[in-house]
């Protein structure tokens, strides 16, 4: 990674001097994201501007975690590459950080929307390729002890020409170690949130990411979110309607989770009713990603070895 050196005697260009902003392409909690041109090379990059607006907070934890995790993971082709971190000041004299990323021209949310708008299906081999890349990227993160915790189509960047997929937005990512730490459960976009998190589990593991991957898999096939709840309760009920209301038999310990209540009793339906058009092998993989019991959920590494991917040319991925 070409991180800037800030040692004595090294002249470092400020972000304003080094880049020409071309357009705003997004906005996050801490600031805006721009498409920009690096003046020295003409290279197009994404600039993620982070305001350090709170003197009492210092460097935001999300920025700190995102950058330090990307420093560790950025060499993987399926994790977005952080090229540099630049420091500057805004008009009010406040410190601003610019994270300089490689530029990707779309994300999976926009990609799915474009197919939904034209009424076309995403080709099965395209889905397979994207899913394999996603599993590969997540396996790399998990192998290095990192949980993403906020996987959703919007956080998966793509290059339309090469169909390359990259995991981004690691602001909520955490290093997990064994021991597993107690994590806050106020994370993750509802639609992709694992049931153990919705039920208040504070000890959780990589399985939360795999649940999100399963939801994304189904969405690639149907072009609709699999479980589109507008509250934590509604989200759980959406899940229970399809997969059946869990109990101690299918998920030992579920009734002891902090937010467990008595829920309406539904029997599990076949996944093919919710994801028509997915072949048998795909449905088998999806069912393993959507296992209720976190320890039974397939790992990203095992998912890559699933027979669903057997006919995929993995050479260039």
């Amino acid at each position: 990674m070409e991180m800037e050196k800030t040692g004595a005697g090294v002249a470092v260009l400020s972000a304003k001097e080094a880049f020409e902003k071309l357009e705003k392409v997004g906005e996050g909690t801490y600031g805006k994201v721009y498409r920009a041109r690096e003046k020295a090379t003409g290279k197009i990059v994404a600039l993620k501007k982070t305001r350090l607006h709170e003197d009492q907070e210092g460097v935001p934890p999300t920025t700190l975690r995102e950058v330090s995790i990307l420093r560790m993971l950025s060499r993987d082709p399926h994790v977005v590459r952080l090229m540099d971190v630049k420091q500057g000041q805004n008009k009010e004299g406040k410190t601003v950080l610019y994270l300089v990323f490689e530029y990707m021209d779309t994300d999976l949310k926009k990609f799915i929307r474009s197919f939904r708008q034209t009424g076309q299906s995403i080709p099965p081999q395209t889905i397979k390729s994207l899913m394999y890349q996603l599993c590969k990227g997540i396996a790399f993160c998990h192998g290095h002890g990192i949980l993403h915790r906020d996987l959703k189509p919007h956080n998966l960047l793509m290059d339309r020409k090469t169909m390359m997929l990259k995991i981004a937005d690691l602001g909520l990512a955490r290093a997990f170690t064994v021991p597993i730490k107690k994590y806050t459960h106020e994370i993750l976009t509802l639609w992709y949130r694992a049931p153990e998190v919705l039920l208040g589990a504070t000890h959780y593991s990589m399985a939360v990411d795999i649940w999100s991957v399963g939801c994304i898999f189904a969405e690639l096939v149907t072009k609709q979110a699999l479980f589109a709840g507008d509250s934590e309760l509604q989200q759980l009920l959406h899940i229970f309607r399809l997969l059946g209301t869990p109990n101690e038999e299918v998920w030992p310990g579920v009734s002891k989770l902090k937010d467990w209540h008595e829920y309406p009793q539904w029997n599990p339906k076949s996944l093919s009713t919710a994801v028509p058009g997915l072949d048998e092998l795909g449905l088998d993989l999806l069912s393993q990603m959507l296992e209720y019991e976190p320890s039974k959920r397939i790992s990203a590494k095992k998912a890559m070895e699933h027979a669903y991917f057997n006919d995929l040319d993995k050479g260039h991925l």
């Binding site: 396996a139 290095h144 002890g145 997990f176 021991p179 597993i180 320890s295 790992s299 095992k302 998912a303």
Partner: peptide, 26 residues
């Protein structure tokens, strides 16, 4: 201080031996 020992709920497709190998390389 809660300290949870290695157990099946931490399965990430990487065995503990592999995980420690990755850490030592890092």
């Amino acid at each position: 201080l809660e300290y949870q020992f290695a157990g099946s709920q931490h399965d990430c497709g990487v065995s503990e031996d592999e995980r420690v190998g990755i850490l030592i390389e890092r």
